[in-house]
Simulated assay, not measured.
Amino acid sequence: GAAEDSDLLPGDSITKVSVLRMTRVTTVGNKNVLEEKEDLYTVQTECLSYDATVDAIGSLPPPVTDQFQDFVQLNLKRLRRRPKVTIKLRYPPDQNEPDTTIEMFAGENLRQGMLVRGVKLNDPLAQRFDTKSEGNCGAGGLCRTCSISVLRGDDLLNPQRVAEQQMLENTPKWRLACKAIVGYGMKEGDMTIQVNPRQW
């Protein structure tokens, strides 16, 4: 139908329908030029049922072609699927944890997402960057207990900031999970990471 040549996609929601009426004025050369666009009638259709939406659109005035040219304008809302990243987790052999796979949404913090999904993340061999002692900094980016090694899919994480680069300069494949955002730039794909990489 007519929707094939439009920008409508399955799942789009029509929120408002307006009839825009253009006055027709004769100018030089006997050509008709359209001027003075104005809303003639508008109906709100957001959150209406299918039948109520059809009734609302049907209540718009019929087109008048003798003196005016009418256009119908649709306002839409489009729901966008949030990209997902599939992450294969590999644990150190001594940890006696089977490899597992989790899914995270683009934009999630890697550390928070892993902890929420029950991943055992704290590395007892890690030392704080600031005090060189043990202890979890609580996602402050100082203790390195949430370090992970990215084996595949590092392009799905946000770029490292200077402080993280300095802390992990001797281990270029490592990231601090507390400073890593998954699916950076709304990308999706697959990753493989090693949890607690100091124990490998």
Rank of each mutant, 00 (worst) to 15 (best):
G11C: 00
I14Y: 02
K16G: 09
R21Q: 11
R24V: 14
K31Y: 11
L34N: 07
E36D: 10
E38V: 13
L40W: 11
S49Y: 06
Y50C: 08
D55R: 13
G58D: 11
S59M: 03
D66V: 09
D70V: 00
V72F: 15
Q73R: 14
Q73N: 11
L74S: 04
L74V: 01
N75S: 14
R78S: 07
L79I: 14
R82T: 13
R82E: 10
R90Q: 13
R90V: 15
D94W: 02
D94E: 15
Q95I: 04
E97W: 06
T100A: 11
T101H: 04
E103H: 11
N109P: 04
G113E: 08
G118Y: 08
K120G: 03
N122T: 12
D123Q: 06
P124T: 05
A126I: 06
Q127R: 13
F129W: 14
K132G: 11
N136C: 02
L142R: 10
T145K: 04
V162H: 12
V162P: 07
L168D: 06
L168G: 07
L168E: 06
T171P: 00
P172C: 02
K173H: 12
W174P: 02
A180N: 08
V182W: 07
G183L: 01
G183M: 00
Y184T: 01
D190V: 09
T192W: 07
T192H: 08
I193E: 06
I193R: 05
Q194N: 12
V195I: 15
